[in-house]
Amino acid sequence: MTSHVSLALDDILVRPIVDHALAEDLGRAGDITGQACIDPDARLSVVWASRQDGRVSGLSCARLALAALDPTATFEVAAPDGSDVMPGAILARAEGAARAVLAAERTGLNLLGRLSGIATLTRAYVRLVEGTGATIVDTRKTTPGLRALEKYAVRCGGGVNHRFGLDDAILIKDNHVAACGGVGEAVRRARAHAGHLVKVEVEVDGLDQLEEALKHGPDVVMLDNFSLDDLKTAVRAAKGRAVLEASGGVNLTTVRAIAETGVDVISVGALTHSAPVLDIGLDAV
């Protein structure tokens, strides 16, 4: 089980996303089903329960969705973010105005299921590379508008975040290299531009580019779609001069062998772009 201490995501980051999702669902007239069928004074107690084995992430989304529609509602966490749960496990309990609980239901479940799915898939990758020394990291292949939440879910799953955006590290990709006229020139320009707190990473697609890049002192080299043999050769050639990141062709079948080549980091776009939603239900009690 992942430690819960370092997993908190401040409400100020989550609330705007939840509010936007609620507004999308409520539309122009609000929940007309609830207005038609439920007495305005009715109260409802509910639980969120997992229907699958998985790892929890995103309970604050369910809490904030409910609080936005009923600030007086209670919300009690039973299995915090980062918890491993089995089918039937209760994640949280709440009590509040029935109309509010039901109007907030889908928004909370959509986000909670999505984030828990990412955390669960990340957990699977992390477990597969245990003992190798390799770190599983995410990418910027996230759902527009949900990056902070999805990268948080990766942390809940035991993974580590790559850069959050274009502004927090220099990452020279193949098209940057083409525009600069070569890997070495691209890294040289990046080094001249970067401040002392800015890391420089460069993507290479072959061992010849790796050697050229290393001459200019990048902090990280991304080995793009290297074969296992070439990954091993790259590790020997780099001799610790840069952090080596393997990327491309990574899945649950291949990740262990990639980790065993000795690379430092394995980036997996699938963590955020292909994670199945964890099946979580909200039930009246």
Rank of each mutant, 00 (worst) to 15 (best):
T2G: 04
T2K: 14
S3E: 11
I12Y: 08
P16K: 15
V18I: 08
D19K: 01
D19C: 10
A21P: 10
L22H: 02
A23I: 07
L26T: 07
A29D: 03
G30P: 06
D31F: 09
G34V: 09
G34P: 01
D39Q: 09
P40R: 15
D41K: 08
A42F: 07
A42K: 04
R43G: 03
R43L: 13
V47F: 05
V47A: 02
W48N: 10
A49G: 00
S50I: 05
D53F: 13
D53N: 11
R55A: 04
R55G: 00
R55K: 12
R63E: 12
L64N: 08
L66P: 06
A67W: 10
T72A: 15
V77C: 13
V77F: 12
A78M: 15
P80I: 11
D81V: 11
V85S: 02
P87A: 06
G88R: 09
A89Q: 00
R99K: 13
A100L: 01
V101T: 13
E105L: 11
G108D: 14
G108K: 14
L109P: 03
L109R: 05
N110D: 14
L111N: 14
L111Q: 08
R114S: 06
L115I: 10
L121K: 03
T122G: 00
Y125S: 05
R127V: 08
V129R: 11
V129T: 12
T132L: 15
G133W: 07
R140F: 01
P144K: 13
P144S: 10
G145V: 11
L149Q: 14
C156A: 12
G157W: 00
G158Q: 01
G159Y: 05
G165E: 03
D167Q: 13
A169P: 04
L171M: 10
D174P: 00
D174G: 04
D174C: 01
H176N: 06
C180K: 08
G182N: 13
V183G: 07
V183M: 05
E185V: 09
R189H: 01
A192T: 07
L197Q: 03
K199Q: 14
E201F: 07
D205Y: 02
G206I: 12
G206H: 10
D208A: 15
G217A: 02
D219N: 14
V220S: 00
V220L: 13
V221D: 05
L228N: 07
D229H: 14
D230Y: 12
L231G: 13
K232Y: 00
A234N: 14
V235N: 12
A238V: 12
R241W: 00
R241A: 06
V243N: 04
V243E: 00
E245W: 07
E245G: 09
G248N: 08
G248T: 07
G248V: 07
N251F: 09
T253K: 12
A259Q: 07
A259F: 11
T261R: 10
S267V: 04
A275T: 02
P276S: 09
G281Y: 03
A284T: 14
V285T: 04
